[in-house]
């Protein structure tokens, strides 16, 4: 299994409350904050044109909606498996950003989980965590 290290965050989708009200159900049309899903920077070519992980030196294989990734929090070893439901994060806007837990470090925004998925492996109040993602 090939794994890529990067930073994980969370995002809301599905027309929930607050600033999420106008978000909609994501690029795949299926995204909901309460479901075990994630946004992936290489969810399509149009998505890659926005997120541009290549500008931060990350080469990602294009995956389509519904593809599963397993994400492991490097701070506590907890893991969750989710499916692609949206495009994101915008990796290029934060090139080189780095998060660490002890010697476990990761750079660049790689994956955004829904609140439901993120809260399985980290607290929502942390906002940003180093992770390892199995990319197949």
């Amino acid at each position: 299994m090939v794994a890529v290290r990067g930073e994980m965050s969370w995002f809301c989708c599905g027309n929930a409350w607050g600033p999420c009200g106008s978000t909609g159900h994501g690029a795949c049309g299926t995204c909901n904050s309460g479901s075990r899903q994630h946004a992936w920077p290489a969810a399509s070519q149009a998505c890659l044109d926005i997120t541009r992980p290549d500008l931060c030196g990350i080469g990602l294989t294009r995956r389509s909606c519904g593809f599963r990734h397993r994400t492991t929090n490097l701070c506590n070893g907890a893991a969750v498996t989710t499916s692609i439901a949206d495009c994101g994060p915008r990796t290029r806007s934060f090139c080189g950003e780095r998060s660490c837990c002890g010697a476990n470090c990761a750079s660049n925004r790689l994956i955004d989980l829904t609140p439901s998925a993120y809260s399985v492996i980290a607290s929502l109040s942390t906002g940003l965590r180093p992770v390892s993602v199995d990319v197949g």
């Binding site: 929930a16 409350w17 904050s33 309460g34």
Partner: peptide, 29 residues
Amino acid sequence: VEPGAPDPNFVEGRIGTITGTMLFVTGSD
């Protein structure tokens, strides 16, 4: 929980009523 499926151990929404220590929440769905 099956990836992509709703998580039964997670609730999202707005609080409509509070009775004692119970919150009554209406989800976005």
